[in-house]
Write a protein that binds this DNA or RNA. Structure first.
Lengths: 217, 217
DNA sequence: CGATTTTTATAGTCTATGATAAAAAATGCG
DNA sequence: CGCATTTTTTATCATAGACTATAAAAATCG
């Protein structure tokens, strides 16, 4: 039983991928409907709205797709590698690669796609903000696991270490968008990993959680 | 000889500072003329345009003011401290402080003020981009000086080290804008400085410039 | 085939917001 | 005072760009 009605002249998934390229390269506000139409197979506004609802809804779908495709290798590395060190280094290197693919827009859609938008575009801005705010927790989680498994010393201030690697991860997104080469991005990752032993070793140099204090500041 | 004509009812410098707060908090596109007027002493559009020319011209003046005030401590630290290590750590800590001042907008105007703007706003976007692109060179310059002075080993790949610290510096700007506390920002700086000896030591771990290659890739 | 359903095409509407025109008001100078 | 000069006031203007109303076209179903 085939679907009734006039068949669409475009493939929805393909159109979504086209929209991702535009939003990735130009950001939410930088992408006009005209740009989007052109990259989505020349579809007309009514078709776009019929298929995706609104520019904002389209953007959110694009961001989800971005996370599921471009962002996946980094996320998988963070969760999948055996040691925390390999996991974090893998996450950073996969990010650096994803943000500097030949033939693709450079930079990170989540870091750059909608910062400081016009009041009317608070929705997309908040959507990306919420995603960025998850990063420190995800990294800390992986570090806490390594502490529990004995890979990293008990008492390590995993939140502080996560703050550092989050800063690097987001910094890579900006740097790539600003035109930094993959070589430069990887040099930044080299630097970040050079801090590892100093940050995580049990001797005096490692970040240590401050002793628990009583409630009430 | 006082100036002729009707006297202005607002102080230009004060109005400029008011505009800086708005652009800093909301970005170029996020700041409407209405927002700006309110923060500039309630001046009317013609007064604003008479005094500053256009929204874009006002923004550029604001960015210059930002660099000369908010950004100054970091720039001075980079250029002024005795050792390269102190210079870079000072730059990062002064940045982290500037991006998390109580009562001021959080985050970095240069990193966040105009990324991925609408096509019509390419001017402000490019203005900030050009400033961000200067960062690696400024850091590398300071490192090269340290190599020349013997503080750092000859053969050090100063460009690679600069790439790392640039990534941190810009990452701090994003993280602060996303709501990271000063404590978190300082933890990131701790991490960045933990990489110092590994990155700059003359033994095998330090970043070394690759041997010169022939031209032609 | 005619009815129904869905998509497409054309042509607009509406709104937010950056920018101005023209005249009034406030000052200095002769 | 009267004129030149500059700023303010008030009232718009202009435009880009997101969105939509209407109806024609293309498919399936009975």
């Amino acid at each position: 039983m085939a679907k009734r009605g006039r068949p669409a002249t475009f493939d929805r998934d393909e159109a979504l991928r086209g929209a991702m390229e535009v939003f990735w390269a130009r950001g939410y506000e930088g992408a006009t409907l005209e740009d989007l139409q052109a990259a989505m197979g020349g579809i007309s506004p009514p078709s776009l709205y019929n298929a995706f609802g609104s520019k904002e809804a389209l953007f959110k779908e694009v961001v989800d797709l971005f996370m599921a495709t471009v962002g996946a290798p980094a996320a998988q590395a963070l969760a999948g590698e055996q040691t925390a060190r390999e996991a974090i280094e893998g996450m950073l290197r996969r990010s650096a690669e994803a943000f500097s693919m030949p033939g693709k827009p450079h930079g990170c859609l989540v870091a750059l796609g909608a910062t400081n938008c016009a009041p009317a575009n608070k929705g997309p801005q908040d959507y990306l903000l919420a995603i960025r705010r998850r990063t420190p927790g995800l990294i800390k989680q992986r570090l806490d696991r390594a502490v529990a498994e004995g890979e990293l010393p008990a008492g390590l201030d995993t939140g502080a270490v996560a703050a550092f690697y989050t800063t690097i991860a987001h910094g890579l997104g900006i740097r790539a968008g600003d035109g930094a080469s993959r070589r430069e991005l990887m040099a930044a990752v080299d630097g970040a990993m050079a801090a590892w032993s100093g940050l995580t070793s049990p001797d005096g140099k490692g970040a240590r959680r401050p002793p628990k204090r009583r409630a009430g500041r």
